[in-house]
Computed example of a mutant assay.
Amino acid sequence: MVNFEPKPTYNVEDLRQIVALLRAPGGCPWDGAQTHESLRRNFIEEAYEVAEAIDEASPAHLKEELGDVLLQVLFHASIEEDAGRFNLDEVADGICKKLIFRHPHVFGQGGEGTPDSWEALKRQEKGQTTETETLQAVAKSLPGLWRAEKIQAKAARAGFEWPNAQAALDKLAEELAELQQAVAEDSNIEEELGDLLFAAVKVARFFHIDAEEALAGTCEKFIRRFSGVEAAVTAQGRTMHDLDVAQLMALWNREKHPEQREKKTREGKHQ
C-alpha cells in the first residue's frame, strides 16, 4: 500500500506521480516489471484506438483513448528516468525546440510555412544531406501501405515520379504479370507480390486515396458480404462447411449484386 491521497480531479503532474508510484518498490509488480519492449505493442494498439475514436467522431471516447496514449508516454519516460537517461521534462523540451525550429514563420525567424519548407527544415534538423537519407528515415514500424506511401511521396519530391496516373496503372499491370509468372515458376512470389502492392500504392497516390483506408473499407465490405452468405447458409439449415466453393461463391455473388445496384442508384441520383 502506497501513501496516496485521492483528489476530486487530477492533472498531468498527478498522472506522472501515479505512474512513478506504480513502478516503485511497493507499487504494482506488473508495472514495475515492464520495459520499452514489453509495452511496444500496447503503445501501437492505443494509438489505433485513438484513430478509431476519431473515426467515430466521439469526443468522450477520444478523451479516454488520448488518456491511454498519455499513460504510455509517461510510462516510457518513467522507465528512462529511473535509468538516469532522460525524464519527461526533457521529452517536452525536445519537442518544444523542434516545433519552434520548424515554425520560423511563427516564432520570428521568417520563412513561408509551407510543406516544402517544413521538409527542408526537417532535413536540416536531422542532418540529412541526400534524398536517399530521407527515404531511409521513414519508420520501418509503420504499416506497410503507409510506409510505401511516405517513401513514394519523398521520392516524388526529388522528381522521381511517374508522369501521370496511366503510367502508374501500366506499372501495376506489369507487376501483376510478373507475379503471375513468379507463381507459374514457383519462384520469388513474395518479392513480386511486394512489388505489386507497392505499385498499387502508387496508383492510390495519383488519385489522392489513402491505401490503408481503401483496404480497411474493403475489409468491412468483405465482412458484410460474408455475413450475408453465412445468413443464407444458416437459413438452409446448413453450415458453411456443408457447401463447396462453387456454392459459396454463388451466394457471394448474390450478396454482391444488390450492393452494386444500390451503388449505381446512388451515383445516378448525384448526376
Results as ranks from 00 to 15, higher is better:
residue 219 C to M: 06
residue 191 E to P: 03
residue 176 L to W: 03
residue 239 T to E: 15
residue 122 K to W: 11
residue 62 L to W: 04
residue 183 V to A: 02
residue 65 E to L: 00
residue 146 W to C: 15
residue 14 D to L: 08
residue 148 A to G: 02
residue 101 F to W: 15
residue 72 Q to N: 15
residue 238 R to H: 14
residue 55 D to H: 08
residue 237 G to Q: 07
residue 13 E to V: 06
residue 270 H to C: 09
residue 205 R to Y: 05
residue 7 K to P: 06
residue 220 E to F: 04
residue 32 G to H: 01
residue 31 D to Y: 02
residue 3 N to D: 13
residue 29 P to Y: 01
residue 208 H to L: 10
residue 168 A to F: 08
residue 101 F to I: 07
residue 269 K to H: 10
residue 201 V to D: 02
residue 198 F to D: 13
residue 66 L to S: 05
residue 210 D to I: 01
residue 209 I to A: 11
residue 96 C to A: 08
residue 171 K to D: 14
residue 86 F to E: 13
residue 189 I to K: 05
residue 124 Q to P: 12
residue 24 A to T: 10
residue 271 Q to E: 11
residue 18 I to E: 01
residue 264 K to V: 04
residue 170 D to I: 10
residue 51 A to T: 01
residue 169 L to Q: 13
residue 176 L to T: 03
residue 232 A to K: 05
residue 265 T to L: 11
residue 41 R to Q: 09
residue 256 K to Q: 10
residue 65 E to F: 00
residue 123 R to L: 07
residue 51 A to Y: 05
residue 140 K to D: 08
residue 151 I to K: 15
residue 183 V to E: 08
residue 53 A to G: 02
residue 30 W to S: 05
residue 232 A to W: 02
residue 183 V to Y: 12
residue 257 H to Q: 11
residue 13 E to G: 05
residue 248 L to G: 02
residue 221 K to N: 09
residue 124 Q to I: 15
residue 97 K to H: 11
residue 191 E to N: 09
residue 107 F to D: 13
residue 11 N to G: 14
residue 149 E to T: 10
residue 223 I to L: 12
residue 153 A to Q: 15
residue 260 Q to K: 08
residue 152 Q to P: 03
residue 141 S to D: 05
residue 54 I to V: 13
residue 93 D to M: 06
residue 150 K to V: 11
residue 142 L to K: 02
residue 264 K to T: 07
residue 96 C to T: 12
residue 60 A to N: 03
residue 70 L to T: 03
residue 13 E to N: 07
residue 129 T to N: 13
residue 211 A to T: 00
residue 262 E to H: 10
residue 100 I to W: 11
residue 132 T to C: 00
residue 37 E to A: 10
residue 38 S to T: 08
residue 34 Q to K: 07
residue 227 S to R: 13
residue 106 V to T: 03
residue 119 E to Y: 12
residue 106 V to K: 08
residue 93 D to F: 03
residue 31 D to P: 00
residue 260 Q to I: 00
residue 177 A to I: 10
residue 28 C to F: 05
residue 192 E to M: 02
residue 108 G to E: 12
residue 95 I to W: 07
residue 254 R to C: 08
residue 172 L to I: 11
residue 24 A to K: 06
residue 221 K to R: 10
residue 227 S to W: 05
residue 148 A to I: 00
residue 58 S to I: 09
residue 269 K to S: 14
residue 43 F to H: 01
residue 208 H to P: 06
residue 259 E to Q: 04
residue 151 I to T: 11
residue 112 E to C: 14
